[in-house]
Amino acid sequence: MSLRVVVVDDSGFFRRRIVEILNADVGIEVVGTAANGQEAIEVVKQLNPDVVTMDIEMPVMDGITAVRRIMAESPRPILMFSTLTTEGAKATLDALDAGAMDFLPKRFSEMAADEDSAKILLRRRVRALGRARLIRPTAAPLTERSASAPSSTPILTARALAAAAPRLSPSTTPVRNLRAVLIGTSTGGPVALQEVLKGLPKNFPLPIILVQHMPASFTPAFAERLNNLCQITVKEAATGDVLKPGSALLAPGGVQLLIEGGAQQRIRIEDSPPGTIYKPSVDITFKSAVGALRSQVLAIVLTGMGADGREGTRALKANGAHVWAQDAASCVVFGMPAAVIDAGLADQILPLKEVGPALLKGFC
């Protein structure tokens, strides 16, 4: 059975283009379109699609409002199309907070190196969302400070491992004498990171490095939002930044974050090696931590498509680091954690809602 999709955009040209691209995949069928958010709500109710693609700026009703209504009345995976601007970043983050699961640039030239690759990426992301789980973490909106890719099809062995994995017991977990927490994530990551970080106290005793697949124009806005939500300090990382307790550094989009050793661990930001798919890449950041931090690392891999993070985790694990992975049931897309679990690298497999409390119990 084909994946049923509704395409929503106020531009007739863009709607036709997306319909043509998606319908070229024998496993995808565009069953309807809409020109604004109000139409989208009605079309989704009538046609019951598996996935919706949604523009943000539209007349009558904007995409963010439409996402909020759809997720309240007839929830399903929604892919946003966004402009890669500061305002576009803020709006996209609002849409993700409202319930959208993923986003892509509206310009194909910003989506991939060439048009054919962009078309493949779009189809892949839509197919992945068709398999995604409708799970929204119970977290505060990303608005104010709180007091408190490759196929991602899950592998059966990963599901079995996740179901049988031991639950975290802070009294028995051998996570001690650490110098940093590293977290890697992709699809579903913005809300997942919010869920993990929101409850950490200002005096959390370890520095945290965050690697989220995200464009360069989005990471400053995302870091600012996390900083407004969390008690710990969150900022977009820059070359020369020192790893400090109670502080999280977010890898900038479009480049790579490396951790350098020495008397103080510092950040170096550099361009990606030729052929690098993910910018930033969890693998590249995790591997850099091997030389700088050796075994004194807790690496956490959260929801996301593909397998980025597996090889970096393998390198850390070989040097004695500890690894946690998000479980299948709480992932939006069980790709990255599944890759780590299937490789036998996860020391603990946790539901998303337990990751933050586990950090508190283990280190506070």
Rank of each mutant, 00 (worst) to 15 (best):
S146E: 07
I78Y: 13
R124Q: 14
C230W: 01
R167D: 09
Q296D: 14
M80D: 05
T173M: 15
I208C: 09
D241A: 06
D271I: 09
L134H: 02
T138S: 15
L352Y: 10
P201Y: 09
R123K: 15
Q231S: 08
I64R: 05
R131N: 12
T233R: 05
L134W: 01
A292Q: 09
D347R: 11
R76P: 01
S11K: 11
A35F: 08
E270N: 11
I300S: 05
T83P: 12
A192E: 07
A128F: 04
T303S: 08
L193V: 10
V333I: 14
G306N: 01
P150E: 04
V323R: 00
A165T: 02
P280S: 03
V30A: 05
L298I: 12
E224Q: 14
A251L: 08
P170L: 11
V67E: 02
Q231C: 05
V234E: 02
M71R: 00
D97V: 04
P190Q: 06
R310N: 13
G362C: 14
V30G: 02
G246A: 04
V43G: 01
G335I: 03
I78F: 13
K317P: 07
L22W: 04
L22K: 00
V355E: 12
A248E: 10
E29Q: 14
G246P: 00
S146T: 06
